[in-house]
């Protein structure tokens, strides 16, 4: 029988490198460091929020190679093979992405805690479904919990973001 780890006294710190928002980021952390904690506390990208740590609420959703995934259900060590995009990577105050802008226009957030998970999820969704109906928009956000908005204005934000994307595509091509 192998020796189980007695306690954290022997816990090894790994040299981790994860590409986040296009930039390789390094930090030392143990193997058990959740990607959510790695982003928030090791890299100090606190835009990704932690609401339940069992994968249900969706607040911690980030894009992994462009696909939305729960960062609380992934270890940073595993994420090394991938490119991670957080809410900070979707756009800054002076260069917002269409989903961010739509949330402001449509009052799609109140306390803002769940919002980053919605923004990443919707950003990826619209890549694959650029013209959703209201019902499809509602289904697209149905894996994320929000306790403030009743979702109605988030649905509206998805539809508005689709418009904004189309407008922006129109002006840049």
């Amino acid at each position: 029988m192998t020796e189980p780890i007695a306690d954290s006294a022997t816990e090894e710190l790994l040299d981790l490198t994860v590409v986040v928002n296009g930039v390789p980021r390094h930090a030392k952390a143990p193997a058990r460091r959740l990607l959510s904690d790695f982003l928030r506390h090791d890299l100090r990208l606190t835009g990704t929020h932690v609401g339940c740590e069992h994968g249900v609420c969706g607040a911690c959703t980030v894009l992994v190679d462009g696909q939305p995934m729960r960062s609380c259900l992934m270890f940073a060590v595993t994420a090394q093979a991938h490119e991670v995009t957080t809410v900070e990577g979707l756009g800054a105050i002076d260069s917002m992405g269409p989903v961010q802008q739509a949330f402001i226009e449509c009052h799609g957030l109140q306390c803002g805690f769940c919002t980053p998970g919605f923004l990443t999820t919707i950003t990826a969704y619209l890549e694959d479904h650029p013209h959703p109906t209201a019902d499809e928009a509602r289904e697209a956000i149905s894996g994320n919990l929000c306790r403030c908005t009743g979702y109605q204005n988030i649905v509206k934000s998805v539809l508005r973001a689709a418009e904004l994307r189309a407008e922006r595509a129109g002006t840049t091509t």
Binding site: R40, H41, R44, L45, T46, G47, T48, H49, V50, T86, V87, E88, L90, G91, A92, I93, M96, Q100, F103, I104, E105, H107, L109, G112, F113, T115, P116, L119
Partner: peptide
């Protein structure tokens, strides 16, 4: 009126309790 707090909250600029004191 559109909310004054939103630009920072949608860009990861909110500062909630656990975002402080690293």
């Amino acid at each position: 009126v559109k909310r004054r707090e939103d630009p920072r909250l949608v860009t990861g600029g909110g500062r909630y309790l656990d975002d402080l004191g690293h």
